[in-house]
Design a binder for these strands. Structure first.
Lengths: 235, 235
DNA sequence: AATGACCAAGTGATCAGATCATTTTCCTCA
DNA sequence: TGAGGAAAATGATCTGATCACTTGGTCATT
């Protein structure tokens, strides 16, 4: 009784969601492309508008599609992803934040090592761009933007590993929600140190120095973790 | 035109979803508890039923709530999670499967090492239970169930690390979708080897042998990866 | 010719009320 | 006592309308 063919057989909503994903796949639509209007979809699948909208909301929740008021339905940026950051997650507590950093300190060093082996070109260039941007943002004092760029550096480091799944995992644990929380604790003073460490990691990856890339990433995240731990305990 | 630092102008649906999550949190509802009827929610928030349902569908997509026809709305099993497996992800291709295994081979060994340090009791017991169950399932030849139990072993290993975020990450990469695909490739013959390796890992964790736990987990996953790689290339 | 104000069509957002389908509760009756 | 079977509760879906936002074009002003 397995549906090995692929057509789901659960509720109407499951069918609709799956069918719409198939439609997107069949049309070779990519992230950002316009999909089809709600009314048109309702007619196509012979269901009422509210029903289609429920199915769309489900897709929307996982970033598969995006609904823009007055404009249309578009293919979302997370379509086809395997691992996601929970878009409805509450801002993490201090404990959860520490735990999250521990997880990153465990996961990212081996990812950096792999990145040093593979060195996917495009991602390397983006890392360099992040470093340049960070330098400017330190000068201009835009801490919010700086924190974002620093997170981008880590995401692009994971991308450089050439493994999309790893990149998704790292993206999931460097999500905006977390950035905001980190920013509160990890304010200026460390900004220049941070940048220097990122630069060193970048160089190691670029040189293909696997062990150095891993060690520097571990030291970097352990350092951040130490600062966070200190501030959590002495607010 | 960046909204950095600014207040995100949320839509009605965002508010509704957030409010309902707050409601669940305020009432200290846990996974599986009954929440509130659709009609009641619509009345409470002074919106129409289809609107509430859209918000509920969004929550449902991330496992925060569950709608049971004729019964009610219940708190879902993934409420409060930070990292999720995409419930709408298509069955992974062979390439994606290899990539996924590579990711696991990178992430899980250090997790096993941490588990050997921490040894969270409840999770250890569940691991033992998984081993016993696997033994029986090998005897009875129920490969589907066996594959599921083996995945549970890995999830519980991550739980034993005491780090919920790591556990969520590992759960996300050992999701049902993937099990089904693995099962196709990784059929009997290796079952006993698999069990033996799991047993060795369990013993190492129980003994608190950090390095051994890490090494055995790495060898185990590398072994699986090798088999998969072979079968992908020679179908 | 370039600019800006304005209008109209397309599209998503929300509403109201009704009907169907499933589950759960509980009362009746053998 | 317990097995049926109504009745209530609740989710699923429909119909059709109205409001709100985006977009592209028109056209007067500069």
């Amino acid at each position: 009784m397995s549906t090995s063919g692929g057509v789901a057989r659960r509720s109407l909503l499951d069918d609709l969601a799956a069918s719409m994903l198939s439609l997107i796949a069949d049309r070779r639509l990519a992230s950002g492309d316009q999909f089809e209007s709600v009314r048109s979809l309702a007619e196509r699948f012979k269901v009422a508008v509210p029903t289609i909208r429920e199915a769309l909301r489900r897709l929307e929740a996982t970033g598969a599609v995006e609904l823009r008021h007055g404009s249309g339905v578009y293919v979302g940026s997370h379509i086809g992803r395997l691992v996601l950051a929970n878009p409805l997650a509450p801002p993490p507590s201090a404990d959860r934040l520490v735990e999250l950093l521990q997880a990153r300190a465990l996961i990212e060093p081996p990812v950096a090592a792999l990145a040093a082996r593979v060195r996917t070109g495009a991602a390397l260039n983006r890392m360099a761009g992040d470093l340049a941007a960070a330098e400017e943002l330190i000068a201009s004092g835009d801490h919010a933007r700086l924190a974002e760029v620093n997170m981008d550096f880590h995401r692009n480091l994971a991308q450089a590993s050439g493994n999309a799944t790893l990149a998704e995992v790292v993206e999931s644990v460097t999500v905006v929600n977390v950035r905001e929380q980190l920013e509160i604790l990890f304010i200026h003073g460390e900004a220049q140190t941070d940048l220097d460490e990122h630069r060193a990691i970048y160089t190691a990856v670029q040189d293909g120095d696997v062990e150095l890339a891993e060690r520097l990433t571990r030291e970097h995240l352990d350092g951040v973790l130490a600062v966070i731990n200190q501030r959590v305990q002495h607010p």
